[in-house]
Computed example of a mutant assay.
Amino acid sequence: MTRLILIGICSALFFSSTFVLNRAMSLQGGHWIWTASLRYFYMFFMLSLWLVLAGNSRLLRGVFAAFRVNWCFWTLAGSIGFGVFYSLLTFSSSFAPGWVVATTWQSTILATPLVLLLFGKRVPRRGIAFTALIFIGIVLVTCEQASAASIRETVLGVVPVLVAALAYPLGNQLIWEARHGKVVTITDASAAVLDDSVARVLIMVLGSIPFWIVLTLCVQPPAPSGGQLINTAVVAVFSGVIATTLFYKARHLAKTPFELSAVDATQSTEVIFSLLGEILFLGGAWPGVTGMAGVALSLVGLVLYVRSQTVTD
């Protein structure tokens, strides 16, 4: 159990780089569109190279074949699950500190039941009270942000994250529905692609590329700086490759529902790492009493919610 928790915490450490580096690029004047889109262009080449070096060139070809068969669906799923999700997350970093974005991001645990209901799934009743703690914590963090910024900055720094928190589980659920033949017809070759974790991520990245191209052409941002090119590459490696690999490894090693819930709960430490990272590397200030109370409530609520899922109704 200790090993699983340590691996989970390490993955959260690398995941938190997203919030800190996105904020850093924003403070340096980097446009949020490049911060978002470049990550996925980097991930496309990194994951493709990963499959080739791992001797899975056939699987790489399968990703493109599966995409061609259902290109409309994968463009929709990738645009929602990766495009809408990450563009809004990076947009918010232009208006709110990384720790505020990280804390608000925990609302994804509240959005998941809504997505399940949308697809006609049964929503577990366990943990509803604990989601209230998360919500209260987010409200307190929002109040803290509002006291230090204008109403406009507060809204633009928080509301996009709430929408992103809904888009991410929606995109993930679309993958699940596709794998089980609920929304599109899946061939045997496509099923093999969706059974591989790297290939699953890659086909979603591929599906998001039209979104990034259209968004960039519509906004026409100034060219990215050299620093932004480097920082987005670091985010792609740290969060898109290392963090995801560590997290999936920990979940794979878990043998019981309790161990799985413990691994999931470690992701709440992203808030702590984001806060410390912003203070250490960006000269950020410690949040006040209201903000710290909000962070604490969100963390406690998230841990209790995840652990409550191991208890039978």
Rank of each mutant, 00 (worst) to 15 (best):
T18R: 08
N22M: 11
A24Y: 13
A24G: 00
A24N: 09
L27S: 07
Q28M: 14
Q28H: 12
G30I: 01
T35A: 15
A36P: 03
M43D: 11
M43C: 12
L47I: 13
A54F: 09
R58C: 11
L59F: 11
R61M: 14
F64S: 10
F67I: 05
R68N: 11
W71A: 10
C72S: 15
W74H: 05
A77D: 02
S79T: 06
G81Y: 03
Y86W: 12
S87V: 11
L88V: 06
L89P: 02
L89A: 10
F91D: 01
S92L: 01
S93E: 15
F95W: 14
F95K: 00
F95L: 00
A96D: 06
G98D: 03
W99P: 00
V101E: 07
T103K: 07
T104H: 05
Q106W: 05
S107N: 11
T108C: 12
T112K: 04
P113T: 10
L114E: 05
K121T: 08
A132D: 06
L133G: 00
I134G: 07
I138G: 01
L140S: 03
V141L: 07
C143F: 15
E144I: 04
Q145H: 15
A146N: 10
S147G: 12
A148M: 14
S150M: 11
S150F: 08
S150P: 10
S150A: 09
T154G: 11
